[in-house]
Each structure stands twice: as structure tokens, then as C-alpha cells.
């Protein structure tokens, strides 16, 4: 199963390192990653494979929410199907 991890917030150093180390520690594989900074706002979107993940999707979401709170950014982990359903006919 694949999930989309979205990180949104004020830009500062170490955000990618922090997020990816938590994912790695839980055996979540990052398949694709893209990021931009628009007027100081950081947006990173990752496509992750949860096949070998130690955590369920709901648990990972909660873990990442804490990570986001620590780093001062907002992090969402969502099943990729929701985006496919809403945006593709």
C-alpha cells in the first residue's frame, strides 16, 4: 500500500532529514519526493511504500503528526487512493 506524505510549513534547515529519518526508522520506503519553497513556505510531497512498514497507516499518521509538531510544520500521511478517487475520473 502506498501513501502520500505532505509536509507544509515555514522553511528551515533539517526538515527533510528529520522527516525521512522517522520514515526510515519505521521501514517506510520513499519512492518519490518533490519539494518547493514559495515565499518562505516549504512544501514537500513524498510518495511512500508502506509494504514493510512497522506501523499501520493510522499509526504512522499519528507518529508523523508528532514529528511535525516538534519540527514546527504540519505533516499529513494519507492513503494514495483518496487522491486518485477525487482527482481522476
Amino acid at each position: 500500500m502506498r501513501a502520500i506524505v505532505t509536509v507544509i510549513g515555514k522553511d528551515k534547515s533539517g526538515i527533510i532529514a528529520k522527516v525521512s529519518s522517522v520514515l526510515a526508522a519505521n521501514d517506510v520506503n520513499i519512492e518519490d519526493i518533490s519539494q518547493t519553497i514559495v515565499s518562505g513556505n516549504f512544501t514537500m510531497i513524498m510518495l511512500c511504500d508502506l509494504e514493510k512498514s512497522r506501523l499501520s497507516l493510522a499509526e504512522l499518521n499519528e507518529t508523523m503528526r508528532h514529528t511535525g509538531a516538534e519540527a514546527g510544520v504540519s505533516i499529513h500521511v494519507q492513503h494514495e487512493d483518496i487522491f486518485n478517487a477525487m482527482h481522476n475520473v
Binding site: 502520500i4 518519490d32 510518495l47 483518496i82 487522491f83 486518485n84 482527482h87
Partner: peptide, 18 residues
Amino acid sequence: MSLINRNQIIETIDMVEK
């Protein structure tokens, strides 16, 4: 990012958050 593009992801999150 496969079939899903960045704007659609942000749009979905904004729909819930805002």
C-alpha cells in the same frame, strides 16, 4: 508523482484544513 499532481494534493488538504 504518478497520476496525482502536487496541486491536487494541496487542494485536498486545504479542503479539509481550511
